[in-house]
Design a protein around this nucleic acid. Structure first.
Lengths: 341, 341
DNA sequence: GCGGACGACTGAACCGGATAAGTGAAGCCA
DNA sequence: TGGCTTCACTTATCCGGTTCAGTCGTCCGC
């Protein structure tokens, strides 16, 4: 089976290649009758313009890139990325853009991938995840003039467009809720400390704790894995004056923490309240179901994709805010026992 | 910043475009000295051949496609796909192939995507997941002559290449293990019944149960979500002569089942043994940790990617077997209580 | 010393589209 | 009727590579 080209369409329609091109792209230069005839023939023989040829002359690849910089086992277990991808994808395929995915090992590799994509004209723009403070990818992308949208922030995005969510507000709301329940000793198990959003959450956590007059605001770092979440929980719960509530930066660590608490003979939420960030279906599977900070991640991805397409179309780089995560109270949070207060 | 082209390299080297092309692609036609000079200049000015131009003349897009046909929330929660993707990706990027991803809603949409990719010459080949019996994608791909590797089987792959794992053997091993522990009433919560691998497992399950002389081999279908897993478990555990062991087709359902059992006052593994298919870190997070059937999924993806590149390179379509899942016993399986036996 | 083979390269065609420039016919107006 | 514009196209060029058919110089054998 031979792939039909624009020349085949032109021949069958009895017109030139140029006329077909005008007709298919909705350009003026052909009569309405001819346009319809050409379109009919194109669909009849299943013509689709070669993306390569189009990219070569039109300079747009109709593809955007996404590089993920996390090891395989973490990518697998975190529902976040797959949900983000499906949201991005939904938006892109609706406008017949393709998504090119690459898994990289570190920032330098990621920058190299951007360079390659740019030089090969493989993508028209990229989505950037896991922003860091003083992120080297930002100046690299600016230098390449490669359209990009950073998923994260606020701040540290240089002149790049970005979509961000107010994690600080969400965290403050959570702490206030726990304090309203009567908790005074609240700890947090944070994600990778090098990531900007971890830093933002950590800072917000200490701020709100100070504001509410809580004596200590312990944050333990981790790498998002269940093992690390368990280890951090064990450490927190073994310390003198152990916390009565713990906030986890993802649901996997929260579930691990729940297991550790139960293993140590503590009841949840009686002796310990647990809040998970990222409300995936996992949170409802365990006992008790976890109170969680959730948001519509596919929508977040779709939002970012829309912004990227806008930047590619030439709109100025904007910093736009996405919805803030909201707290869904479930069975893992309750007032602390008077004895342990 | 201007993207360097082959003409820039040629000009600086004082040779023709053709010579540069020969030099960069390791073709004969240039002297070793000139080749080295050209290579040096190319790296110096950061030259990368435009993938579009190359695809246009050379007819190879240096990209492969993967279409996923699952709703976003299931894609997110199942570690399988993300792990598969990262394995595929590792193999592809090592040979500088790109991975193009698309999420589709059903088989027809998926076939349409293949048609589009083929007509647009966007990809050189595709990986096909979630094989079904009488899968319409198989004849569609054969008709297009689009290089493809089916991830799944055995059988029902037509003339397409495939990589498969012996789920029947893994299931038999699991049932034999449970029977050796003393179980006689074993049930199974299967995945989507329309998927071939579900069918293979179901058949293997009834076969091995008959062979071992177990009176009944109940399989309940589900859609891989925790909710469905919970519902199926509730039904199984409420039935007269309830099973003493349940095998789940994924870990999410197994965890949901564990919760239901505990909620119904049954102890695991005392009253009920649980085995999960797909051994993700989740299985180690819960209490008791789940006995699971695990395999190296990134390696599976890498294997499939390797096969696809071979098919693209012109090798005949082969059906090759990947490693069989192996059972990792943990705390969720034990001999049944004498009373409940 | 000369024909032929070979190595090293050049020039040009080609891939399949987009697009600027050119062309011929029709329509309009004075 | 001639000149001007507009419409509906065609023609030609370009994008940036690959590749084939030449070309030119050199070495070799006889």
């Amino acid at each position: 089976m031979k792939r039909p080209t624009i020349a085949d369409v032109a021949r069958r329609a009895g017109v030139s290649k140029g006329a077909v091109s005008y007709a298919l792209n909705g350009q003026p230069g052909v009569s309405e009758a001819t346009r319809q005839r050409i379109l009919a023939i194109a669909t009849e023989i299943g013509f689709r313009p070669s993306s390569a040829a189009r990219a070569l002359s039109g300079a747009t690849a109709k593809a955007v890139g996404l590089a993920l910089c996390r090891p395989a086992r973490i990518l697998g277990i975190e529902p976040f990325f797959m949900e983000l991808i499906s949201g991005v994808e939904a938006e892109l395929s609706a406008r017949s853009y393709a998504l090119t995915l690459q898994v990289v090992s570190d920032q330098d590799a990621e920058i190299a991938v951007y360079r390659r994509w740019w030089a090969e004209r493989r993508v028209d723009g990229v989505l950037v995840c896991d922003l860091r403070t003083d992120d080297r990818r930002v100046p690299a992308l600016e230098e390449l003039r490669l359209p990009a949208v950073v998923i994260g922030g606020p701040g540290h995005t240089g002149g790049l467009a970005s979509v961000w969510a107010d994690d600080a507000a969400a965290l403050a709301e959570t702490v206030e809720y726990l304090v309203a329940l009567g908790h005074r000793r609240i700890a947090r198990v944070g994600g990778l400390p090098s990531l900007l959003h971890t830093e933002i959450r950590t800072e917000a956590f200490t701020d709100v704790c100070r504001r509410l007059g809580l004596n200590e605001a312990t944050t333990v770092s981790s790498d998002y894995t269940g093992e690390e979440g368990a280890r951090a929980t064990r450490r927190l719960l073994s310390s003198p004056g152990r916390p009565t509530a713990v906030i986890y930066d993802n649901d996997v660590m929260a579930i691990a923490g729940l297991s550790v608490a139960q293993e140590m003979g503590l009841t949840v939420p009686g002796d310990l309240s647990i809040v998970a960030w990222d409300d995936s279906p996992l949170c409802r599977l365990v006992h008790p179901p976890l109170t969680a900070l959730g948001r519509d991640i596919p929508a977040y991805g779709a939002h970012a994709a829309r912004r990227l397409l806008a930047v590619i179309a030439g709109e100025p780089a904007a910093v736009v805010q996405d919805e803030t995560a909201h707290l869904t109270p479930r069975g893992s949070t309750a007032p602390p026992r008077p004895t342990s207060r």
